[in-house]
Design a protein around this nucleic acid. Structure first.
Length: 598
RNA sequence: GCUGCUGUAGCUCAGUGGUAGAGCACUUCCUUGGUAAGGAAGAGGUCACGGGUUCAAGUCCCGUCAGCAGCUCCA
């Protein structure tokens, strides 16, 4: 995963965000010049640039963007100053009305009473243009002091509400120097190359099919290997962590989801019922009801708790057609789900255990993450204040116990309990939620779960939902981008390519390949009569971590010429030395790809 | 779901209402090569799908499906 936009945030006379906001104004004035009927929405600076929303009589195309850029340059060439003017609310309203800017008038009404109301103007004569805006802005718009590019146009709802009309949004970016802009654009190209959808095709990892439906992922053998290694690792960790495997059906009677409440609260995300023997059945959107049924199957004692049950459970959810995205947002996916049934006293320890597990897994893949504590929402919650406070405190304690820093997400909890969410970043710098730890007071109540306490009374357990990878689809999609297709040795689809120099060396090469295979390494034995150079190229293309090239000398000495992914140099070492090295890489799940030392 | 764009060979993409194209990949033969493209020949197509306009549709129109950039919503 690309860590961050490497474009240097070159020090200009103002912060980059101020420049970008001013360029957004410049763009808006150019748009008004070209489309006098334009209505204006909002036009802020954003992480990598800026946008401005317009209501226009015609649909913009990329061609229009070039025209607008040209007009922006013409205006900027006159080095217009940007000037601020303070208005009273009534003056502002009057001005906006005279300009016929309905959206802006709505914007004016959003400004709280007592706050300063300002306009920013730039340009002279016919070019004069002003906008209701709190600023700040750069002093002047001279084209020699900054560089910009308009990137694309997209629809966006007025004030982000899908009930409102849709405006046209133009995205652009701006920097103080030409080099910084260039570097940013190159970074965007790099991001595109690492897109998991592109690599998914290039490396033969996965596919989706119009004929199967949007949002359903087909894992090809190469990615199947990655998944299987990941699952093996996951089960090893969970077995060691005291989790027991459970398996629950994909389809259940609808009444189960009425008990769990999913039908009422989550119904629009669920697939339509199917009828069997005149009863409605549903495909599961979550695994928790099944786990609750297992808990409830017999009486439970406090002596059994905590119970930790894990399932790689495949669920199906209806996602709106416009939101599906490669492997990152799909309609059928497998959660690395587990539920912990425990007493309130055990909660903090259990949470701490999960936090440790999350850290172990995310660190193994070199992910950086942030954790958020999501607390009780303002309304519509279940459970009394005391249990909320106690659970929230347990989450805090647990985090403190494992030195996990929590950012507060006030009121961001589920209606059924507080939670800790983890977020990692993808190649575009977008944050994706993967790991989550959620306390649930609701489901135990709905299913009337109980255990017998030491005093013989029936007590309600707390149920902790937790996922570490989130879903295998999203996590692996993230992994592809994180590593740019260059998987670490232990999960790489093909780990070692074996290439004889000439056909007569194929016997020695075959011996090498068979020895590797006997130790369960994944070997691409390229033993046919083709050209060595072609095989090297093919192994490079496939991102195979190591190539072993064997000719006469190697066959005589029992060595291999090792060529490491991403390099052109070879190191000749005894085959046994290489074997020892890769055993170590596999066993330690190393992220490194070292050169063997002779 | 909404706005806009796109859909031609495995991949990347040309294609002006009148015979379906290129490069790479693939197959076969030749080449026996010490670290990223040796040579020749061949095969490969429901131009996403359905309807319409037209003497004639990959090309124009409508619909459906899928993809892309966003908005909105989520693992």
């Amino acid at each position: 995963m690309i860590q961050a936009d490497p474009a240097p945030q070159v020090e200009g006379p103002h912060p980059l965000s101020t420049l970008r906001h001013s360029v957004a104004h410049l763009m808006a004035s150019a748009v008004q010049k070209l489309f006098p009927e334009a209505q204006f929405g909002f036009g802020p600076s954003i992480e990598h640039g800026f946008y401005y929303d317009f209501d226009l009589p015609e649909q913009l195309t990329d061609k229009d963007l070039r025209k607008i850029e040209k007009e922006m340059r013409r205006i900027a060439n006159r080095s217009p100053k940007i000037e601020k003017e303070v208005f009273t609310r009534e003056e502002a309203r009057e001005r906006l009305r005279s300009w016929g800017q309905e959206f802006k008038i709505e914007g004016l009404d959003l400004i709280p009473e007592g706050e300063e109301i300002s306009f920013y103007f730039h340009g002279d004569g016919e070019d004069r243009w002003g906008d209701l805006c709190e600023g700040p802005h750069v002093d002047s718009l001279s084209e020699h002091e900054f560089h910009f590019k308009l990137q694309h146009v997209a629809g966006a709802y007025w004030r982000g509400d899908e009930k409102n009309p849709m405006l046209q949004r133009i995205y652009g970016t701006a920097f103080w120097t030409k080099d910084a802009l260039k570097e940013h654009l190159e970074w965007l190209e790099e991001v595109k190359k690492r897109d998991h959808r592109k690599l998914g095709t290039d490396l033969d990892l996965f596919s989706v099919h119009a004929n199967a439906g949007a949002g359903f992922v087909f894992w090809h053998p190469n990615l199947g290997v990655v998944r299987r290694e990941l699952e093996r690792y996951w089960w090893d960790l969970h077995t060691a962590g005291g989790y027991k495997p459970v398996y629950t059906p994909h389809v259940s009677r609808e009444s189960l989801f009425a008990v769990s409440g999913h039908l009422q609260n989550y119904g629009e995300m669920m697939y339509a019922p199917m009828e069997l023997d005149e009863l409605p059945y549903r495909i599961k959107p979550m695994n928790c009801p099944g786990h609750a049924l297992i808990f409830k199957d017999r009486g439970r004692s406090y002596r059994e708790l905590p119970l930790r049950w894990a399932e790689l459970g495949t669920v199906y959810r209806y996602e709106r057609s416009g939101v599906v995205h490669g492997m990152l947002r799909v309609r059928g996916f497998t959660q690395d789900d587990a539920h912990i049934f425990c007493t309130p006293d055990q909660l903090a320890d259990e949470i701490a255990g999960v936090c440790r597990l999350v850290d172990t897994v995310l660190t193994t893949f070199g992910f950086e993450y942030k954790a958020y504590l999501a607390t009780k929402p303002a309304e519509k919650t279940i459970g009394d204040d005391e249990i909320w406070e106690r659970a929230t405190e347990s989450l805090r304690q647990a985090a403190a116990a494992v030195d996990l820093e929590l950012e507060l997400d006030e009121g961001g909890g589920a209606f059924y309990g507080p939670k800790i969410d983890y977020k990692i970043k993808d190649a575009l710098g977008r944050e994706w939620q993967n790991s989550t730890i959620q306390c649930d007071f609701n489901l135990p109540e709905r299913f009337d779960l109980a255990y017998t306490a030491p005093d013989g009374s029936q007590m309600r357990p707390i149920m902790v939902h937790r996922a570490i990878l989130g879903s295998l689809e999203r996590f692996v999609g993230g992994l592809i981008e994180h590593f740019g297709g260059k998987f670490p040795f232990w999960i790489a689809p093909s780990q070692v390519a074996v290439i004889p120099i000439r056909e007569e060396h194929a016997d020695y090469a075959r011996g090498v390949a068979e020895r590797l295979e006997s130790e369960l390494f994944r070997v691409d034995a390229m033993l046919d009569a083709g050209h060595m150079n072609k095989k090297i190229k093919e192994a490079q293309r496939a991102q195979t971590p190591y190539m072993l090239i064997a000719g006469e000398r190697e066959a005589e000495e029992g060595t291999v010429a090792v060529r490491r992914r991403g390099t052109r140099e070879q190191v000749v070492v005894p085959f046994e030395t290489f074997l020892d090295m890769i055993r170590g890489l596999r066993d330690t799940k190393s992220l490194e790809l070292p050169e063997p030392s002779a």
